[in-house]
């Protein structure tokens, strides 16, 4: 279980998170929605401990990770897999080396064992046979799927998705959505996705949380969010320029 408690974070004078509370149950798929610059990425980076909060806690399975030493934090991070917005594949490594990166770093496996697992994970995202390509040879959608294969290579308990459908065409976006659902069902992972793509949010979420002005303003099932009376939520999901959210 993941609990974010009263999280505050500022960069210089810019207040990004101003008391975020969020709870994600084991095996649940949580989607955090919010506008560009609302602090979604900052929130997700706190959950995996890349950023340290000014105050507040992030509790992963009863451990507050905000006060951990790097070594202890790395043990917690091994429970995670993360898909970055631009996939963040390592340019200098081939596809199979990217997918097997964690296996080489932490399990001390030999090349042929790593390759075998990398092939299996690539198969799961529908990309068998591209092991030897370099990231620069791949299209945007392929990069995201390789990023997903890398995220699941270490059999994580928690998957984080940073804008999984941003920057790719609608059909590929739906392929990614299906993969996210498949991961949850097959691997029984807890997942947190951040997005502003409502089609994707409705499809992959068990629950949706809306982040606005550094706080979670509403949490509910996709059905509840669709029928929300909250003016902020209403404006966001209908994508209207008129309402309480100003740009």
């Amino acid at each position: 279980m993941i609990r974010v408690i009263d999280l505050y974070k500022s960069f210089n004078s810019k207040k990004v998170l101003q008391g975020v509370d969020l709870e994600v149950k084991k095996g649940e798929s949580m989607v955090v929605i919010g506008g560009s610059g609302s602090g979604k990425s900052v929130l997700i980076k706190h959950i995996i401990g890349i950023l340290t909060p000014d105050s507040g806690k992030v509790v992963i399975d009863d451990v507050d990770i905000t006060s951990l030493e790097e070594g202890e934090l790395n043990e917690i991070r091994k429970k995670f897999g993360m898909l970055f917005q631009g996939a963040a594949l390592f340019d200098s490594l081939s596809v199979w080396e990217n997918v097997g990166f964690g296996l080489r770093q932490h399990r001390g496996m030999k090349d042929n064992e790593i390759r075998a697992i990398a092939s299996e994970k690539l198969g799961m995202v529908g990309l068998a046979g591209i092991e030897n390509l370099m990231p620069s040879d791949l299209s945007g959608g392929m990069r995201k799927r390789v990023g997903l294969a890398r995220a699941i290579a270490m059999d994580p308990e928690i998957l984080l998705y940073d804008e999984p459908t941003t920057g790719i065409d609608p059909i590929m976006a739906d392929v990614i959505n299906d993969l996210i659902i498949e991961m949850r069902e097959k691997l029984k992972v807890t997942s947190i996705a951040i997005t502003h793509d409502m089609v994707s949010a409705y499809k992959i979420a068990d629950r949706i949380a809306m982040l606005y002005m550094g706080k979670i303003v509403s949490v509910g099932t996709p059905e509840e969010i669709k029928n929300s009376d909250n003016a902020i939520v209403k404006q966001f999901i209908t994508g209207s320029a008129i309402g309480p959210i100003t740009v």
Binding site: R77, F84, G86, F90, D91, F101, H106
Partner: peptide
Amino acid sequence: AELGTMRVTEQIDALYTMATN
């Protein structure tokens, strides 16, 4: 240039998430 590109494309963040300093 290489490390800078890795920073702006989140590859350095990706290293952290994979428990690699």
